[in-house]
């Protein structure tokens, strides 16, 4: 790991430049797709803080994603018409939820952790689905007006997909930076150490459960924030957002892109949406193609697409020496 060499800075800068400039040369539709990719990237990266960096496979991450969406919409419907208030409510709400559920879940690991989080996620799903008077039941909770975004001096209308895109870009960027700081910090190192060998971490005096719980709460809260973006973008919070199959999407994108790299899940999200777009354009039998492509990608990229590509370049740089 060198310092801030040009080689390290350049691609990140280019990526950022592309994302900032995108709305000016892409069609509205692709701006919308990019918005969804960014939202799902944040969601999948939050999942990967648990999975890739802590070694905990959560199958209930959609529970927090959806809860964030519901908290925000409920605030918009019954509270002040402010996006900031809605976002704050969702952050506090999902953090508390993640604290309680996480406290129960982090005592297990491996597949048991996965199934237990799936169970709690599905309880949240059932709550959203059955508590019709509050959540609107299976039809979801919509009918709110999207308030303009108050940026001190300006009011930005989010009805324009391009403005909304910039909001999502900013939030996702902040989330990514937060995650980057976390995984590079001593805390992040400890997390990774618990993944490799939790006993050894316990020996050096760290409280493994508390470490995991902290990661769980951060991951849950970030997923909640992604859920707020998703719900406002679609103008509805629906029970599907909390379903295990939605958690499965985060798993899919992460493994597809590469769980060992921070941006791996984002790459996975991009691949998934671009693939889905092209497949659904030429056929309604999209599942059979998506399934086949997934199988091929899993077999061809042992570390996920981004992970494997980076490894390939790294090896090339080091020369042919094995």
């Amino acid at each position: 790991m060198g310092g801030l060499t040009l080689r390290r800075i350049l691609p990140a800068t280019l990526l950022l430049a592309f994302l900032v400039a995108a709305p000016f040369f892409l069609s509205t539709y692709w701006v919308i797709i990019l918005t969804e990719i960014l939202t799902m990237s944040l969601f999948a990266m939050s999942f990967n803080l648990l999975f890739g960096y802590t070694g905990l496979l959560s199958f209930g991450q959609a529970g927090f994603f959806g809860a964030g969406g519901y908290f925000a919409v409920l605030t918009l419907l019954h509270g002040p018409p402010s996006l900031w208030v809605a976002l704050a409510a969702a952050v506090v709400g999902t953090a508390l939820l993640a604290l309680v559920i996480g406290w129960l879940c982090v005592r297990l690991d491996e597949i048991y952790f996965a199934i237990l989080t799936l169970g709690f996620g599905m309880m949240l799903f059932t709550t959203a689905h059955n508590w019709r008077s509050v959540t609107g039941g299976s039809d979801g909770l919509g009918g709110f007006t999207v308030p303009p975004l108050n940026l001190i001096a300006w009011q930005v209308s989010l009805f324009n997909p391009k403005y909304f895109y910039f909001l999502v870009l900013a939030v996702t960027l902040l989330g990514t930076l937060l995650l980057l700081r976390m995984v590079k910090s001593p805390f992040g190192l400890l997390l990774r150490a618990t993944r490799e060998n939790s006993n050894r971490v316990a020996f050096v005096g760290a409280n493994v459960r508390r470490l995991r719980l902290f990661a769980f709460v951060i991951a849950g809260t970030l997923a909640g924030v992604a859920g707020v973006l998703f719900a406002i973008f679609n103008r509805i919070a629906s029970p599907e957002m909390l379903h295990w199959s939605f958690s499965g999407k985060a798993v899919l994108m992460t493994v597809l892109g590469g769980s060992g790299v921070l941006l791996g899940p984002a790459v996975g999200a991009a691949i998934f949406y671009v693939l889905e777009h092209y497949i659904t354009t030429f056929t309604t039998s999209w599942m059979i193609f998506l399934g086949a492509i997934l199988v091929v990608l899993v077999l061809a990229f042992p570390k996920g697409v981004l992970g494997s590509v980076m490894e390939f370049f790294a090896q090339k740089r080091r020369g042919a020496a094995p």
């Binding site: 350049l10 691609p11 991009a270 590509v309 980076m310 370049f313």
Partner: peptide, 23 residues
């Protein structure tokens, strides 16, 4: 490190995928 190279590649790929729509 080549992380950024990979990111660059991705940018190109997505950009390529998104052009040439609609005539």
């Amino acid at each position: 490190m080549t992380k950024r190279c990979a990111a660059l590649l991705l940018v190109i790929l997505i950009g390529w995928a998104m052009t040439g729509m609609g005539l």
